[in-house]
Simulated scan of single mutants.
Amino acid sequence: MSWDWQVFCKSTLGDEASASCFGQGGDITYLDWLLSAWGWTLSVSALALVVALATGILIGILRTLPSAPWRWFGNAWTELFRNIPLLVQIFMWYHVLPQLIPSLQQLPSLVLVVFALGFFTSARVSEQVKAGILALPRGQRMAGLAMGLSLAQTYRHVLLPMALRIVVPPLTSESMNIIKNSAVAFAVSVAELTMFAMQAQEETSRGVEIYLAVTGLYFVSALVVNRVASLIERAVRVPGLVTAGAK
């Protein structure tokens, strides 16, 4: 089997190759397309991670409050979003919710995918935040309240700073999972890496080269996230505390 890596230097409009592998003017090569798709993948992943962390931390807190209705809401949110397949949730956001909420029809598919992926991941983040809070000695909450802090202040100044430092390792895995899960965005026509791979393979019949390149970019993206998160973990690690995944 002969490999033809020059396929990335070819124009998407024909078989002619570009000398620099980057198109000029209106000419676009498969390398241009690949890098653009990588950018869309990173954009979807980064935005979804922001949604997941913001929502997941809030839901995790609600699941540890003394108030039963808030705990019920947090548990219901978690069970709903983690027990429905991600692809089904994306189709719900893309095909069903815009029919029920017409204003959503004005949103681009990228935004809908970000919310679907972010809320799906928030259920997993909430489990980790809840576990981090419950892992702390009960005396810390009681001490905060005894010092005159409100419940909100106790969470903000006493519980969350410790709990979030404990759960950095599992949050690293979720950050990497978001990059991999973003591949389902192709189902609603977001021009990310998986969609590029499918379409470029059909046009060029060079599936080995195309899928190896896409796989490499997924690997590099996840590896960078892992290394950055490891640096953050070392920087915020609680002295004397051994956590799962600590190096």
Rank of each mutant, 00 (worst) to 15 (best):
S103Y: 13
T121K: 11
S67C: 10
L160E: 15
S103C: 10
M162S: 14
P66N: 00
A163L: 09
L110F: 08
W93D: 04
L117K: 10
V129R: 03
A131Y: 10
T154E: 12
G148A: 10
L160V: 11
L151K: 08
L134W: 00
L97C: 04
R138F: 01
F119L: 14
V88E: 13
S126C: 05
K130S: 09
I84E: 00
A135H: 07
R124E: 04
P108V: 05
A131I: 13
L160H: 12
L104T: 07
L164S: 15
F73T: 00
H157P: 08
F120W: 12
S150A: 08
W93F: 08
V96C: 12
A116Y: 04
L160D: 01
L100E: 04
M142F: 02
N83E: 07
V158S: 06
R138Q: 12
R71L: 02
R141V: 00
L112C: 05
I133Q: 04
A131E: 09
M147I: 01
A131K: 06
S150V: 08
E79G: 02
G118V: 13
M162W: 05
Q106N: 15
P66H: 12
N75A: 05
Q128H: 09
P98S: 06
G148Q: 12
H95E: 05
G132K: 07
V88H: 06
L80C: 05
V113Y: 01
I84H: 12
P98F: 14
P98H: 03
L164F: 13
R156Q: 14
Q140A: 14
L151Q: 04
L87S: 02
F115H: 07
T121E: 03
L110N: 07
A131W: 11
L110K: 08
S109F: 09
V125P: 10
Q99C: 03
P108Y: 15
S109L: 00
L159C: 01
L107V: 03
P69C: 07
F120L: 05
W70C: 08
P66E: 11
A163N: 04
N75Y: 01
L134G: 00
I90G: 02
E79P: 05
P69Q: 03
F81K: 03
W93K: 02
L86K: 02
H157T: 12
L164D: 12
Y155C: 07
L160M: 12
R156G: 15
I101P: 14
G144N: 05
L80W: 10
I90K: 00
V114G: 01
V111A: 03
L151H: 03
R82T: 06
W70N: 00
S126Y: 05
P137I: 06
S122T: 13
V158Y: 02
I101C: 09
P161C: 03
I90L: 15
L97E: 02
W70K: 05
A76V: 00
Q89W: 01
